[in-house]
Design a binder for these strands. Structure first.
Ligand SMILES: [Zn+2]
Ligand SMILES: [Zn+2]
Ligand SMILES: [Zn+2]
Ligand SMILES: [Zn+2]
Lengths: 160, 160
DNA sequence: CACTAGTATGTTATATTATAACAATTATGT
DNA sequence: ACATAATTGTTATAATATAACATACTAGTG
C-alpha cells in the first residue's frame, strides 16, 4: 500500500499554502483578464484558511467578526461564483461548501476525498478515475459536461 | 462506440418500472424486517414516477394535490430517510433530489449520469469506476465509507 | 383483552443554503 | 470629466432541511 502523504495530512507551514494560493490566483486572474478585487481575494484567503471545505455563511461570519464588514449573502455568493468561474475554488456539493483548488492554473474537474472525522479534504487528479468515468459515459453515448466525484471516508490520521 | 440503450432512454412501459420497484421494495423490507408503510410506499412510488430525480418539496406538493395530504416537510424527509437507509432510493447531492434505485436488492453505491437537458438520470454499476476510486483511495490510505459520482452531461436523446 | 414499549406520523417552529431585484459605488477607457 | 461597464450594497424572499415535542399506531406480553 504505497501511502501518499499529501501536505494537507501532515503538519506543514500552512501560511505558505495560503500565500501560494493567493499568488497563483493573481496569475490566473491576470491571464484571464479579470479583476481579483480585495473582497474576492479576501474570500479566497478565508476558503484557504484550512484544508477543510468552508460554507458560505461561515465566510459571512468571519467577514462580520474580523473585518467588521456586515456583508449580506449575495456579496459572498458573488465572490464565490467568481472564484468558481476562474477555477480558483471548487464546490463540494455533498457539504454545500467550498474548498481552494490545489492547481488552479490548469482548469479541471476536482475529485475529492473527504474525511468525515476531521473534515480534511484532498483534491485528487486521477487519470484512472477520469478515464473510467469517460469510458462508461461513452458506452452510454453520453456527452460529459461536468463530473462530480466526492468520496467520504476516514483519512489515515483519523483511523483508530 | 458500443452504445447501450438503458430502459430510461427509450420508450417503454413505465408502469412496469414502477410496479417492479414497489415489488422489490416489499421484498427488501421483509428481508430487513422493517415496515414499508403506506406513506413510505407512496413516497417511493412518487420518486419512481419518472427517471428524473425528484425534490422533497415536489413530493410534498404531489401529496397535497393528489392525496389531499397536507403533510409537512418532516413527514416527507422521514420517509425519504427510511428509503435511503433501506437502499431503495439514492440522493443526488448536486441536485438536492432523489431517485429510485435500480437494484435495491443488493446494497451499493450509485454512480449517475444526469442529462442537463431532459433531466433523465441513469444509474450505473461500473466496476471500472469503482475500482479506480478504491485504488486511488487506497494510495492515500483512505478508508472509504461512501462514494458519490454524479456526471452531468447530455444524453443521446438530447444531443443535436 | 388491556397494557406497554417501541415505532411512525403529525405539527409547529426554525435553521441553513441560495437567489432575485434593484440601488449605489467604483473602476476603466476615451 | 464623461460615459460605460463592472462590482458591491441592500432588502426581500426562495428553496432545502431539521429540531422538538405531541399524537397515533403497531406488535408483543401477560
Ligand atoms: Zn496547508
Ligand atoms: Zn482543483
Ligand atoms: Zn421507466
Ligand atoms: Zn442504486
Amino acid at each position: 500500500m504505497n501511502t501518499k502523504n499529501p501536505t494537507a495530512l501532515i503538519p506543514h507551514n500552512h501560511a505558505s499554502c495560503i500565500a501560494s494560493a493567493l499568488d497563483k490566483a493573481q496569475t490566473v486572474c491576470q491571464r484571464n483578464k479579470v479583476r481579483l478585487t480585495e473582497l474576492r481575494l479576501r474570500v479566497l484567503e478565508l476558503v484557504w484558511r484550512s484544508h477543510k471545505p468552508l460554507g458560505a455563511y461561515d465566510i459571512l461570519a468571519v467577514l462580520a467578526k474580523e473585518d467588521g464588514r456586515n456583508a449580506a449573502p449575495p456579496t459572498v455568493y458573488r465572490a464565490l461564483d467568481f472564484l468558481l468561474e476562474q477555477g480558483l475554488i471548487h464546490r463540494i456539493a455533498s457539504l454545500n461548501a467550498f474548498i481552494g483548488c490545489s492547481d488552479p492554473e490548469c482548469l479541471h474537474q476536482g475529485y475529492f476525498l473527504i474525511c468525515n472525522q476531521c473534515g480534511i479534504t484532498l483534491e485528487l487528479h486521477s487519470d484512472k478515475v477520469s478515464k473510467s468515468i469517460h469510458q462508461v459515459a461513452c458506452e452510454y453515448d453520453f456527452e460529459i459536461s461536468h463530473e462530480m466525484v466526492e468520496v467520504v471516508g476516514v483519512c489515515p490520521n483519523c483511523q483508530v
